[in-house]
C-alpha cells in the first residue's frame, strides 16, 4: 500500500523520465540527423510503433519541432535509406546495441545535462550497461524506465533489496526514500548524487551531526559507513552490528565490566535502592554503550570525568 504513493511509484518515474527527455533534448537544440526518410515511410512497416511515438517522452518534445515531428525516427536510428533498400536488422542503427566500445553513446548526443556527462566514467558504463538496459524510449510518457525505481535497481542489486527488508532500514520499501535520493545511476563520483563523499551526502539530510563539535567522535568525521549500513541492518539505527559489538571493534571493554556484583539490595547515600547480582556489572557495561555515551556523534558539552578531559560524549 505504501509504495502506491511513494517516490518509487510509476508516476514519479514518469516525471523523472520526462525531465531527462524533454529538458536535455531541448537544451542542446535537438538532434540533427533527420531528413532522409520520413516517419510515414517508417510507419508503412512499423505502424504501431510510429503511431504510439507521439505520446512518448521524446514524442511530446518532437511535437514542438516540425523537423523532428516528421523525421523523428531518424534522430535516433540514423538514415533509413539503406534499411528500406535491404530490409534487414543490420541495416539500421539500434541504440540498444550501443556499448562502451562504440562511438560516444548515441543518447548522450542529446542528453548533455551535467547529470549525464559522467556516464562514461561510471561503474554502470564500465559494466557494459547501456541506456536501454534501464530505459525504453518507445514507452508512453511515464514509462521510459522499464520498471519503477527501486524495483529496477533491485533487478541487479538484489543484496540491497534484502537489506531494505531488515528490521532497521531507510524507508525505501515505504516509498518515502528513493534510490535516486542518494545515488546517481548516470554518475561517477562514487555513484552518489552530488556530494564528494559519503559523509557529505548523509549530512545533507542529517545536518545535526555535522558539527564541528568541541568533542568529536573520530569515525563521525571519517565516514558514516564505519558504523552505519544505510540500506538496512539487523541492528537498531542502521548500525552495522548491535552495540556493544560495534563499539568493541575499536574500543576495549569498559573495565568496570570486570567488577563482581553484590548479591542483594542495598542503598546509596541518598537512600536509593540498588538491586544487584553477581553479573550485574557485566550486564550494565556490556549491553548498550550509548545508554551513557548518548552524544556519540559529538557534542560541545564536556562530560564529567576530569581525567578524560571531558571527552566521554555523555551529554
Amino acid at each position: 500500500m505504501e509504495s502506491s504513493y511513494g517516490r518509487g511509484s510509476p508516476r514519479y518515474r514518469r516525471c523523472l523520465a520526462l525531465l531527462v527527455a524533454v529538458v536535455t533534448i531541448g537544451l542542446i537544440g535537438g538532434p540533427a540527423r533527420a531528413g532522409d526518410v520520413d516517419n510515414e515511410t517508417c510507419a508503412a512497416c512499423h505502424e504501431e510503433i510510429v503511431a504510439a511515438f507521439a505520446k512518448t517522452a521524446h514524442g511530446i518534445y518532437y511535437q514542438a519541432r516540425p523537423a523532428l515531428r516528421d523525421y523523428g525516427c531518424e534522430a535516433c536510428h540514423g538514415s533509413g535509406t539503406r534499411h528500406i533498400e535491404e530490409g534487414t536488422v543490420e541495416s539500421i542503427i539500434n541504440p540498444a546495441n550501443s556499448r562502451q566500445f562504440d562511438d560516444p553513446i548515441l543518447c548522450l548526443d542529446c542528453h548533455r545535462d551535467a547529470q549525464f556527462q559522467d556516464w562514461e566514467f561510471s561503474s554502470h558504463h564500465t559494466e557494459d550497461m547501456n541506456c536501454t538496459d534501464c530505459h525504453d524510449a518507445h514507452a508512453e510518457y511515464g514509462g521510459a524506465l522499464k520498471q519503477p525505481v527501486p524495483d529496477l535497481c533491485y533487478s541487479c542489486h538484489a543484496e540491497v533489496l534484502a537489506a531494505t527488508r531488515m528490521p532497521s532500514h531507510h524507508p525505501i520499501a515505504e516509498g518515502k526514500v528513493s534510490c535516486n535520493d542518494c545515488h546517481n545511476p548516470h554518475g561517477a563520483e562514487a555513484m552518489l548524487t552530488r556530494d564528494i563523499d559519503n559523509r557529505e551526502l548523509c549530512l545533507s539530510c542529517h545536518p545535526q551531526y555535522e558539527g564541528p563539535f568541541v568533542y568529536e567522535h573520530a569515525p563521525v568525521n571519517e565516514d558514516c559507513m564505519i558504523c552505519h549500513q544505510p540500506h538496512g541492518s539487523v541492528a537498531d539505527n542502521l548500525l552495522i552490528y548491535q552495540e556493544p559489538t560495534l563499539c568493541l571493534n575499536c574500543h576495549d571493554m569498559h573495565f568496570h565490566a570486570t567488577v563482581v556484583g553484590f548479591e542483594g539490595v542495598s542503598q546509596d547515600r541518598l537512600g536509593r535502592d540498588y538491586e544487584s547480582e553477581e553479573d550485574s556489572w557485566k550486564r550494565g557495561m556490556l549491553t548498550k554503550c550509548s545508554q551513557c555515551h548518548s552524544a556519540v556523534h559529538g557534542t560541545d558539552n564536556p562530560s564529567q570525568a576530569t581525567s578524560s578531559g571531558g571527552n566521554g560524549l555523555t551529554r
Binding site: H256, V259, V260, G261, F262, E263, Y274, S276, W281, G284
Partner: peptide, 30 residues
C-alpha cells in the same frame, strides 16, 4: 512528510553494586 517512531529504552540493565568480601562495596550504578 513522514514520521519516525522510537522505542523506549527502560535502562533496566543498569543497576549494580560492587561486592567486597561479601559486603556491598563502593561502586554503584543505577
Amino acid at each position: 512528510s513522514m514520521t519516525f517512531r522510537e522505542g523506549q529504552d527502560l535502562l533496566t540493565n543498569i543497576e549494580a553494586r560492587e561486592e567486597i568480601n561479601g559486603n556491598p562495596g563502593g561502586k554503584m550504578m543505577g
